[in-house]
Nucleic acid binder design. Structure first.
Lengths: 232, 232
DNA sequence: CAAATCAATTGATAAATGTCAAATGCCGAG
DNA sequence: CTCGGCATTTGACATTTATCAATTGATTTG
């Protein structure tokens, strides 16, 4: 593994406080691999052999049942995924596929569990990470249960605008059909939802969004930190 | 605190492995209180001052936005709730109210965080608990995004049947209007959904459910451990 | 560049879900 | 026991969302 990546991983909240020896031990069994776009990295139901870390690119976590499927979340560098399955030594609940060319580090789950038992700083970091993950899903569950698809889109746009720097014009960061799935709707309805936001000053050109009237959109969307602020 | 409750709490996975001194320290600051039904114990957005443990009765976790509200989960004895907020020292994401007369233990959050730093067995137990909570929410999210309300009800009935002992006749464990909210629908539609399951052999009399043809219902519901098995 | 491919949009329609109002049924207080 | 209150059910209707088919638009590839 290149030294720069080694250091990048070390800097993650999850690993930054652990003992050197333990981090080195973890990395010894780890390996890094490049994947092309649209590769299925893991499949739900399989045993969780590796903790994954996205070093570059991006990964879609999705799930299927009875012929349907849905995007659950997107993982961006640099962060881990399927930590809970690794810790519990339980099957993956979600599948994962690369959205673009991606570089992924793989750490054997049994190593993670072993070091977790030996290093209490690491254990503490895992707690913080899991608590964060848990709260994120709760927020997204509230978004789904309390809002219509139009409201979900409006709030998504406000969140994405913020992530992209806060300007009135910004880019969607993934395809509309995946956005539709993330928002729990269909591509057709997403398209109509964009139209439905025109009265609030939202203009769409391809993946470029313009928020013509911030106040109008916010009054409609009613963003709430207990749903939309993923940093807390 | 009565000795029997002290021991019941000690037996929880969360506390069973920690050092005696630490457990005693935690319990010193804790207190136990009886609440009548329908009391709001915590309100979303407030700072998380206490980790709560339901000793008897039951508690509804719910959330509101823009005049709507929804039931997120039910907490039954003996287990904790709002662990993630306590650990992160972040505001509650959900409100909680007693569903019936309930006995609740309250442990100051700062004590939990302090002991968490000092006792690595406790830290490990928290990891396991949080991983479990996380996976439960993911399952419930999959249920919501991948299934229609009829399918959610069918699978709910199968889960509840199992929890109640597996017989063909069993009782719903809470009011239908709350069940509707948990399932992400309205009381009116829940009522129609029960009718919609008649062709699969489901009969409803008040809160008594009869599953006339297990195979028919299961073929329709298509239960899946990665969504419906909350033990793994 | 042109053809092929795939995403996105649009229109028409169907299905699911929500809302409102009224009726029914259940349960506890007096 | 009877009444009143509340949960539940039902019916009619509105809204939202999904589905299907066709078209448009953008991008890739030979």
């Amino acid at each position: 593994m290149p030294d720069s990546e080694y250091r990048d991983i070390r800097k993650l909240d999850l690993f930054s406080q652990m003992a050197d020896a333990h981090f080195t031990a973890l990395m010894r069994g780890a390996y890094v691999q490049n994947f092309p776009a649209q590769i299925e990295l893991i499949t739900e139901g399989e045993p969780s052999d590796f903790l994954h870390i996205v070093l570059s690119g991006s990964v879609d976590l999705f799930s299927a049942w009875n012929g349907r499927d849905t995007s659950m979340a997107t993982v961006r560098p640099i962060s881990t995924f399927i930590l809970a399955a690794t810790i519990k030594d339980a099957p993956y609940l979600m599948s994962a596929r690369t959205l673009e060319k991606s570089r992924i580090a793989l750490i054997p789950s049994q190593d993670v569990r072993a070091i977790f038992d030996a290093d209490s700083n690491f254990a503490r970091a895992i707690v913080t990470e899991l608590a964060q993950c848990y709260r994120s899903v709760i927020k997204s569950q509230k978004d789904l249960k309390l809002r219509t698809s139009l409201e979900r889109l409006a709030n998504y746009l406000l969140r994405q605008q913020k992530r992209a720097g806060g300007r009135a014009v910004f880019e969607l960061d993934f395809e509309k059909r995946r956005l539709a799935s993330v928002l729990g709707t269909t591509p057709e309805n997403l398209s109509r939802a964009f139209k439905g936001l025109q009265p609030y000053g939202v203009t769409v050109t391809g993946s470029r969004i313009t928020i013509g009237n911030q106040g109008d959109l916010e009054r409609f969307a009613k963003p709430n930190p207990l749903i939309d602020d993923f940093s807390m």
